[in-house]
């Protein structure tokens, strides 16, 4: 029973903490973010298993966590309210080339973050080229360009696609 309760408690606590820390937290996964995630998982592992390192305990904890996840996904599927509460809602950050500063600030973003996403995803250079920028529930910024999307940017070490011979 102890293992199941521990698993439930840790799942709920992690869910709440990551929900309130904002959807952009640890989204970028810089090397430091990666180290932070590993530290968090290490701290969590101690609390989950306690002093019991048996296979039975590990299996029980894993099953608890997976069932929690399945249960929540079913809940989100059936209830839009639950989905909104658990994941938040997409947020418009740029409309017709105009950034919305209050929203950017609340989402802990700035125009450079939007432009960076625009460059990376759509090869856009200027704010005016962005029709809509949306902060999705998973923390990713999606870009809808004002005009036809440009070819994806050429990354270092790759070759540009050549047109087929006529």
């Amino acid at each position: 029973m102890d293992s199941v309760l521990r698993g439930l408690a840790i799942y709920v606590i992690l869910l709440l903490l990551f929900r309130v820390s904002g959807r952009r937290t640890l989204r970028e996964l810089t090397p430091f973010d990666l180290v932070l995630l590993l530290i968090i998982s290490e701290a969590t592992q101690q609390a989950l298993l306690g002093n019991d390192f048996s296979i039975a305990n590990a299996v029980l904890v894993i099953i608890t966590l997976l069932l929690c996840d399945i249960g929540l996904s079913l809940l989100k599927q059936r209830s839009q309210r639950a989905s909104m509460l658990l994941e938040g809602v997409p947020t418009l950050l740029v409309a017709h080339g105009r950034p919305l500063p209050g929203r950017l600030e609340h989402a802990r973003l700035d125009e450079q973050d939007v432009l960076s996403a625009a460059r990376e995803l759509r090869g856009l250079e200027r704010m005016e080229q962005i029709r809509f920028a949306v902060l999705e529930t998973d923390g990713q910024i999606t870009i809808v360009p004002e005009r036809e999307p440009l070819a994806p940017p050429i990354r270092a070490g790759t070759q540009a696609a050549t047109p087929p011979p006529r």
Partner: peptide, 11 residues
């Protein structure tokens, strides 16, 4: 986008 904007109160 209008539908998304309608949820901004929640956001």
């Amino acid at each position: 986008m209008e539908r998304m904007e309608a949820l901004q109160g929640f956001q």
